[in-house]
Design a protein around this nucleic acid. Sequence first.
DNA 1: TTGTAGGCGTTATCAC
DNA 2: GTGATAACGCCTACAA
Lengths: 354, 354
Amino acid sequence: MATSVTLSDVAREAGVSLATASRAVNGSANRTVRADLRERVLEAAQRLRYTPDANAQAMARGRTTCLGLVVHDITDPYFSSIAAGVTAAADTAGLQVMLSTTQHEPDREVEVVRLLQRQRARAIVVVGGRHDDDPGNEVMRRALADYAASGGSAALVGQPVLGVDTVVVDDAAGAADLARALHARGYRRPAVLAGPDAHLTARARRDGFTAAFAELGAPVDPAHVLTCDFTHDGGRAAMRELLAVGADVDVVFAVTDVMALGALAAARDRGVRVPEEVALAGFDDILTLRDVVPGLTTVRVPLVEVGALVTRLVLEPAPGQPRVHPVATEVVLRESTPDRGDRGQRSGTSGGMP
Amino acid sequence: MATSVTLSDVAREAGVSLATASRAVNGSANRTVRADLRERVLEAAQRLRYTPDANAQAMARGRTTCLGLVVHDITDPYFSSIAAGVTAAADTAGLQVMLSTTQHEPDREVEVVRLLQRQRARAIVVVGGRHDDDPGNEVMRRALADYAASGGSAALVGQPVLGVDTVVVDDAAGAADLARALHARGYRRPAVLAGPDAHLTARARRDGFTAAFAELGAPVDPAHVLTCDFTHDGGRAAMRELLAVGADVDVVFAVTDVMALGALAAARDRGVRVPEEVALAGFDDILTLRDVVPGLTTVRVPLVEVGALVTRLVLEPAPGQPRVHPVATEVVLRESTPDRGDRGQRSGTSGGMP
DNA sequence: TTGTAGGCGTTATCAC
DNA sequence: GTGATAACGCCTACAA
């Protein structure tokens, strides 16, 4: 920085030693400063417009006030809500949040952890479901282990496969609850926009959903479980596919709200009305969609709380085994899945898709 | 951090001096290192799992690789889209983003700028419309000036009243375009959920809208211009008020999409159907709403681009007067404001959805 | 090309 | 309670 006032300047101006100035500006641990001296120092600091250099403090103290946050895509309401929880909790703890986005690229995620380690972030929060690929996870696990070895602590929102404390949303149970609720509303021919097969969150939601429907005696047609990207466009593509083949389906479950939005777009493109011709449900209960009419049936995940929780977790690291903190969900029924009433029989002119 | 490998360790391990190690790890400007030596150093670094300390580098070099980003609320799609643009551009420039949220509190905004200055952020991007209160702006202006004096550069997305480079969305023109489009669709009795009176963005949108309607010979009833918070709940409260008095209105313009969502919630609460009983339009064209059915008529602001733009701007500071970079908008007509057809004259409509 | 040494701004450990 | 002074980890003239 061009010309910045240092603590030495302040000390000189106040006529005290550097040490005293330091103690006055940031109350030292045990040492204390005489009131009048501190007054003088503070005045001098103000007069000179002194601003402490956090980098220098970090060096001297051996720790920064930075917390790293890793998400895939900050425009995704899922991540931005969690991010809000993280920033709030970090703020409470007096930490700044360093935000990194990975654009859904695993390599980039590892890279970003390394970057955060360079910054000597005091803690790292990684958000995002893991994939079922050992080599990929292994790289990430290694990066986090390196980071931990350097003294930082990390935590994850996802699945406990990285050797760090993890907040785990009970996706399977939530999806099963949703399935039962839809069944109760009379749906019998569900389809699933399932996301990537290897994505553990997607898989848990898909499996929880299909298992519950099977248990209810209305097994999901395997042909109606569509793999796709875990994104808006993924949902859109899968829905388009579903519509293209004219699948006989009365409700579509997209494993995230954002994917459900993509599905909605596909339906619109094809002129298929939701929920009149086909019902739709998502997962997450993202904020922006809460007031849309017709409302999207979904499974609420307390995203902001999850963010705050994982942050508190990472800031009070526990020795020993990585902890797992489960988070419950709640089904939210809205207009996108109206009651079919007649328990599975088609009513009116349409019930399936074209 | 607990036990971290330093460059000295690497140098010793490689049998070279600290200086050589430094030059090998980060290719020094002019000095170059013999190939075999560099190889040895890099190997040693790898073996020891050396990670450069960005804080130490920042001290030695006199500049960090941090860019500060200040937004009101990261869960708001408006801000998160801009944030995405900022992080992308920052990443391109090799910078990390430090995210701070103000929760709509002006004091907090100033505080956050100071925090960023402590961190010696290389640049600061502030996002958010200004208020029409000189004292408040003066404090912020002062904080940014202090920051600039310390060698950083700042830029703003909002109105050019802070003495820094500013990206200015042409809100008035966008709102006027919207008004004309609505008029062309036959709307004659508009209401405005206007946000805070002192909020310059809100005001520009409101005034652009009302001026255009007045020009078209259908002036907005002043009683139908409602002041409210610049938030979801603000829109909701205002809409509730509007509905409570049974205002004679055929279209409601909320000055942001998020406020329009609040309005939608209020309508739903009261059992008023949109757009059958009253049409609704917003501003921003936030991502999440693009595929909702019925679509929300709005004015598109290229948010991600705005974020990238302001970041590029702040990273190539120009001497002299603060620059102003205007950004144009585009009306997007959707189903929330169907053509009234039978009313008044028609002119060609723009945009629109399938 | 390589090494030496001073300095970046602060904290912390000592004596006093 | 206060003040020198040695770290902290790295970069960079400057000297060799």
